[in-house]
């Protein structure tokens, strides 16, 4: 009897042992770095090791809210982050409509073509997106050579990429160009799972296609929309740095720096490590709280969590 239990136990531990090497990787690359948050409390200056750095407590956190230059900078960074995430959040219904209208294309081959082509930009890197932007909108790019040399509409090339007054909007446009088709796929899948009989019944009742969209398709997509919206809220502070890093230049710097990019920029400044860690630490904590709150809202209103 005992032997049998032992055997079972041994088997279950054996199964566990197989995944240990992978758990080690997870701990090394995802959990161990959390220890690095310590650096936010020291006056750390590489290459000296942390053990030789003086402990300064919450100096860097205070620095963030007391040093007037930093306060100004941080304020602008937060505004940029909030505005750009806000634009993304408030336009997150666009992929849904995109999918709804794509579903109205009844020529299957054309629809497939459109779907393939519009999802393509999602799979190229931000560097390549920037390269496309550069080749088309640069001072000697396609648009300017058309406007200046070919059609003689203007004398001086327009510096689209250096423009600082519409950064938020143009960044949103590039993001949309890259993501829209891909974001719509989730909704296309959801549309294909709507009961066909609903549409048949509506047709019999004389509903136009617009009415079908309004009373059948969109209401059935709202749950999906809601889940994705909550996820977006959870990611509100995390715009990622790649897009803004590649598009940034001396002229648009002020308005393009989002939190993720700011953390990186700080880290490249001499002696900026502790401050950078402090900012990213605050960001992480707030992000996790946002995620939990969004998940809580999802649980309360729809009875299911997405975590």
């Amino acid at each position: 009897m005992f032997k049998k239990i032992d055997k079972k136990k041994w088997y279950s531990i054996k199964l566990f042992l197989f995944i240990v090497p992978f758990l080690v990787l997870v701990v090394l690359f995802s959990y161990y770095p959390l220890y690095g948050w310590m650096y936010a409390f020291y006056d750390y200056k590489p290459p000296k090791p942390l053990s030789e750095a003086p402990f300064v407590g919450v100096k860097w956190f205070k620095f963030m809210v007391e040093n007037p230059v930093r306060v100004e900078q941080l304020k602008q960074v937060l505004i940029n982050t909030f505005v750009m995430s806000g634009i993304t959040l408030s336009t997150s219904w666009i992929p849904m409509l995109f999918a709804v209208f794509m579903n109205e294309l009844h020529r299957v081959r054309f629809r497939k073509f459109v779907q393939t082509v519009t999802t393509l930009p999602n799979f190229i890197s931000w560097v390549l997106v920037y390269s496309v932007a550069y080749n088309i909108f640069n001072s000697d790019g396609m648009v300017n050579s058309l406007l200046v040399d070919k059609w003689h509409l203007i004398q001086e090339p327009i510096l689209f990429l250096q423009d600082s007054s519409h950064v938020w909007l143009t960044q949103w446009l590039w993001l949309t160009w890259k993501n829209l088709g891909w974001a719509a796929i989730m909704y296309i899948a959801a549309i294909s799972s709507i009961d066909e009989e609903l549409f048949q019944a509506a047709k019999v009742d004389g509903a136009t296609r617009m009415q079908q969209i309004r009373y059948i398709t969109i209401p059935s997509l709202l749950p999906t929309f809601f889940v994705l919206l909550m996820m977006n809220i959870g990611n509100f502070l995390s715009n990622g740095m790649e897009q803004y890093y590649v598009f940034q230049n001396a002229f648009n710097k002020e308005y393009i720096q989002v939190l993720d990019l700011y953390v990186y920029t700080l880290s490249t400044v001499k002696g900026g490590y502790p401050l950078s860690v402090a900012v990213s630490m605050l960001k992480s904590v707030v992000s996790v709280i946002l995620l939990v709150v969004a998940n809580g809202i999802s649980k309360l209103t729809r009875g299911e969590s997405f975590l």
Partner: peptide, 19 residues
Amino acid sequence: RIVIATMYFNAGIIPWFLT
């Protein structure tokens, strides 16, 4: 859960780099 949780948090680039 330990593995999946890593999708939702991030130590930040400096701690990651130092690791």
